[in-house]
Design a binder for these strands. Structure first.
Length: 891
RNA sequence: GGACAAUUAGCUCAGUUGGUUUAGAGCGCUGCCUUCACACGGCAGAGGUCACAAGUUCAAAUCUUGUAUUGUCCACCA
């Protein structure tokens, strides 16, 4: 074995091996197994780009759960896949098209553009898959899905058809967030808000009879052209008299009423009067509905003003605004202009300003569906970890907003709806076709499977569905729904969903809804929300900030196991994980981002590697003895107690999704207990018995650690225990409670304090390890067979006895340790140290005395606590006493 | 504006139901050691009034309230 663990070849070797042995496939595929199932569907990464560190974290956690449950003997399935990510993917491809070829999608046409996006998808899906594999993800790659593949497409058609038939999908004119650049509606959550410095224009709204005006203020003067009312507060003395009167809209000369509306109008704000543009503002839209106002659309799809804008037709954005302001000025209607800071919504995808826009869209009616999905969480059927995220889910669903599912895009599932101008009676007897007459007079025809032929009577809706529509079906569409498949029988519902908190509403909630609707069951019992990874300054990692860390760089530099170990370690309740990012120049000239955090994982792997390397010659060829583990040696009983405690703690941690605790428990056991203590004790003379316990401990550690660090554990197992079953499949250790013994652990710790006392003297005087020293202890602790252990670890010759002359002393519980240092002992050093020790112990003792002299404490506190305090006090007094004696001897 | 969180050593973070912790780990720092598994290592050590204020309690890093700062999600003002 090499002195350092070299991950590169080893990772490749085991990926190949596991794959060849079909270890990632569920047991039921390989043999007839009827054991309990454990299944996960991957949150499908978007094919927009390669995976980042957040994905690495998300998938590490999933793989840990999968590998752990596989080792528990469950019939385990992890379904991988990717998401077409509608707008996002089309946007990146269109952007590249414009950059490379100076073409827009209209130059290419729908068919050609979609073909280009498929090419992009194929490239990135391959990259994503390769990244997941290199991470060690034990997915069943034969079941890989894509949200646009035929299996998922069928599920989408069935889901849509069913909802349509039930009347839960409807088409309507709604105010949507319109992306004027991409010419599509976007969801509320695809918008971000930016503070911009704008203006607040106050102008005169003239009465139709010419008898005066109402002053109205606005940040968007161009929308005057679409006004259909002006609202005032019903109890506003200034404007009460105008209610019911008629105003004339400047430029277009339309007559509109003055209405009273206490919801829209805040008397204190601005002029206390509000112009109402129902077609271009959400609040105004609501007002329009309340007052049955006409809704006049003044925009074209590209955001330019349309024919309803009269003389301003064709103008767009800032130009339109400037022209309208100029017009107001010309007609002497402008009163004043103020600076005004406001927020504008921008599209995530195109980064352009979103216009509220009235258009025909498809919606899912949410009220009843949301209600049921809320119940699933309220009843505890679906459990969130950490629990507080349930609130997030419930709040959002509680709004029960109808979900706009149509997108004016080309990349996605085209809506299976055809418009007919007259009743399509020839479909009347078809079970797979459902139609009805819409408010608009059109007949809406939905076809379950077949794409209907288009002609002059029948045209297909060109829109596609919101990406989240197909994502919402993911847990059952990937298993073959609506067909009654074996997978659905064997693996549905899934066991846990591991995802990020920012898509709880977008995705998690909708999966629950659609699963309840389609399957009549919840999609998963548990939702684990994994932390968000931030850089050292607490910012999200992103391309534009240049602070993103590529998981492949980390895998190359530190190894997949190191990456995984650190990912596991940062999964705490905190839910935010900062990784200080550092630039590094590689030999080939590439500059990459890394984080020194990953050294922890690499160093840990190396530590384990070397422990195994040391042990290897002693145990080669022997099989592990897992029976007859009893021993009379204190240290042997101790390591068995520790090992079994760790098994218990590990299982506990995983069961409660406490991943950082899981990693820390094993790290501490391997490094401190196994290597620094047990191995150091045993290394002097490795007998048959001790090597068997050592190898047993290591063997068990490989199992415990395998879910986090699969590669190195499998490799070490192959080296040390070539005749055993591979770690990936063999049974996870079970704790033997009989071997857990707190008394033994305490005894061992007591003896170890003697070792540490000797070492601290050595440290205090900087005595090189090569220089032999003697240690003498006066103690009540039973030392029995531990003399040689103290001598080995303390690098001293050790005996019991009274204090020799010229010795440094250390007080330990129940005694004192002396190290004679004639010629080396420095009085000042000793005196200073003793004084410090006394001071510390005295102040501690004082605080305990204070506590114990408090009547209420003695009266109310449990006996055990009081006894504990008394014990502590006695210890501190003992320290003071002994140190004082030592001090007098020195002075 | 609403909701949810965070604030503990120079840095990144643990600390599960208040009492075995006048607070732990890793990195960094100081001293000693290339000792026959590991310098990606060993041993010893320095370093914190647990953001601030009030309260509850015999007892608070831990519970309550308030303040400050930071972050996330949701909703948004003509």
């Amino acid at each position: 074995m090499e002195t350092r663990y070299n991950h590169k070849d080893i990772e490749e070797k085991w990926l190949k091996n596991w794959n060849e042995q079909k270890n990632f496939k569920p047991a039921s595929d390989v043999s007839k197994s009827s054991s309990e199932h454990f299944s996960i569907v991957i949150p499908p990464p978007n094919v927009t780009g390669a995976l980042h560190l957040g994905h690495a974290l998300n998938n590490t956690i999933q793989d840990i759960l999968i590998r752990y449950n596989r080792k528990l003997g469950k019939n385990t399935l992890w379904i991988p896949g990717t998401d077409h990510a509608g707008i996002a993917t089309q946007a990146v491809v269109e952007k590249r098209l414009l950059k490379d070829e100076k073409k827009t999608r209209h130059d290419l046409g729908r068919e050609e553009l979609v073909k280009r996006i498929w090419d992009w998808k194929n490239e990135y899906e391959a990259r994503i898959t390769s990244q997941l594999k290199l991470l060690g993800s034990s997915c069943d790659w034969d079941r890989q899905r894509f949200t646009l593949d035929p299996m998922c497409a069928k599920a989408v058609r069935y889901a849509f058809f069913n909802l349509f038939k039930k009347g839960l999908i409807f088409r309507g004119k709604r105010l949507v967030n319109w992306d004027t650049h991409l010419h599509t509606a976007v969801a509320d959550d695809e918008i971000y808000h930016e503070n911009v410095k704008g203006h607040f224009w106050t102008f005169k709204y003239p009465l139709a009879d010419g008898s005066g005006y109402i002053p109205v203020a606005t940040t968007r003067p161009e929308t005057i052209l679409g006004d259909t009312a002006v609202a005032v507060h019903p109890e506003d003395e200034r404007y009460k008299k105008f209610i019911g009167k008629t105003l004339k809209v400047p430029f277009v000369n339309r007559e509109i009423p003055v209405i009273a509306d206490a919801i829209l109008v805040d008397r204190e704000f601005g002029t206390g009067s509000v112009k109402v543009t129902p077609a271009h503002d959400p609040n105004d839209y609501a007002t329009g509905l309340r007052h049955k106002l006409p809704m006049i659309n003044i925009l074209n799809e590209d955001g330019s003003l349309n024919e309803n804008a009269g003389e301003f037709k064709g103008l767009k954005g800032e130009k339109a605004r400037a022209a309208v302001v100029e017009g107001l000025e010309k007609e002497s209607l402008l009163i004043k202009v103020e600076d005004h800071e406001m927020q504008v919504g921008k599209s995530d995808r195109s980064k352009t300003i979103i216009e509220p826009y009235l258009s025909d869209q498809w919606f899912v009616k949410m009220d009843k569906l949301a209600e049921k999905a809320m119940q699933a969480v309220e009843s505890g059927e679906v459990k969130f970890t950490p629990a507080r995220y349930a609130k997030n889910y419930l709040n959002w669903l509680g709004e029960k907003r109808d979900w706009c599912i149509s997108r004016q895009l080309w990349w996605g599932h085209q809506i299976p709806i055809w418009y007919a101008s007259s009743e399509p009676t020839h479909f009347a007897n078809r079970k797979d076709i459902h139609y009805f007459k819409a408010e608009s007079g059109d007949w809406l025809v939905c076809s379950l499977e077949e794409d209907l032929p288009e002609n002059e009577k029948l045209t297909r809706d060109p829109d596609v569905l919101d990406t989240w529509f197909s994502s919402a079906l993911w847990p059952h569409s990937t298993m073959g729904w609506p067909s009654e498949t074996e997978d659905l029988k064997n693996f549905y519902p899934t066991s846990v969903l591991v995802t990020a908190r920012d898509i709880i509403s977008l995705w998690v909630a909708r999966m629950v809804i659609f699963s309840q609707e389609n399957m009549g069951k919840i999609p998963f019992n548990n939702v684990y929300i994994n932390p968000t990874i931030l850089d050292g300054q607490g910012r999200r990692m992103s391309k534009s900030l240049g602070n993103g860390v590529d998981p492949l760089d980390i895998i190359e530099k530190y190894g997949a196991d190191s990456l995984r170990f650190v990912m596991c370690s940062i999964c705490t309740e905190n839910q935010e994980a900062r990784l200080p990012v550092k630039k590094e120049k590689l030999e080939d000239g590439r500059e990459i981002n890394i984080s020194e955090k990953f050294e922890i994982g690499r160093n840990f792997g190396n530590k384990l590697w070397n422990a195994a390397r040391f042990l290897q010659p002693h145990i080669s060829g022997e099989s592990v003895n897992r029976e007859n583990l009893s021993s009379d040696n204190l240290e042997d009983k101790w390591i068995l107690s520790r090992l079994n405690t760790v098994i218990k703690e590990t299982q506990n941690a995983i069961a409660n999704y406490r991943f950082s605790e899981y990693a820390a428990t094993i790290y501490h056991f391997v490094w401190d207990d196994l290597c620094s203590r047990y191995l150091e004790i045993k290394k002097g003379e490795i007998s048959k018995e001790s090597s068997s316990l050592l190898s047993y401990s290591l063997y068990t550690v490989l199992d415990l650690l395998h879910p986090i660090m699969p590669f190195i554990t499998e490799e070490l197992n192959d080296i040390l225990f070539p005749n055993s079953q591979r770690v990936i499949l063999r049974e996870f250790p079970k704790a033997n409670e009989n071997l857990i013994n707190a008394e033994i652990e305490k005894q061992f710790e007591d003896i170890f304090t003697i070792v540490e006392a000797v070492r601290s003297v050595r440290g205090r005087y900087s005595i090189a390890p090569s220089q032999k020293i003697t240690a003498v202890a006066k103690t009540t602790v039973d030392l029995k067979s531990s003399k040689s252990m103290i001598e080995d670890l303390g690098l001293c010759s050790f005996e019991l006895g009274e204090k020799p002359a010229f010795s440094a002393s250390v007080v330990i519980p129940g005694g004192e340790v002396f190290v004679p240092l004639e010629g080396i002992l420095n009085k000042e050093t000793e005196i200073a140290r003793l004084k410090k020790e006394i001071e510390k112990a005295e102040s501690f003792a004082a605080s305990i005395e204070k506590k114990l002299s408090n009547e209420n404490f003695v009266k109310n506190a449990p006996v055990a606590v009081i006894d504990g305090e008394k014990q502590k006090l006695a210890t501190q007094r003992d320290i003071v006493e002994k140190c004082k004696v030592a001090l007098t001897e020195l002075t």
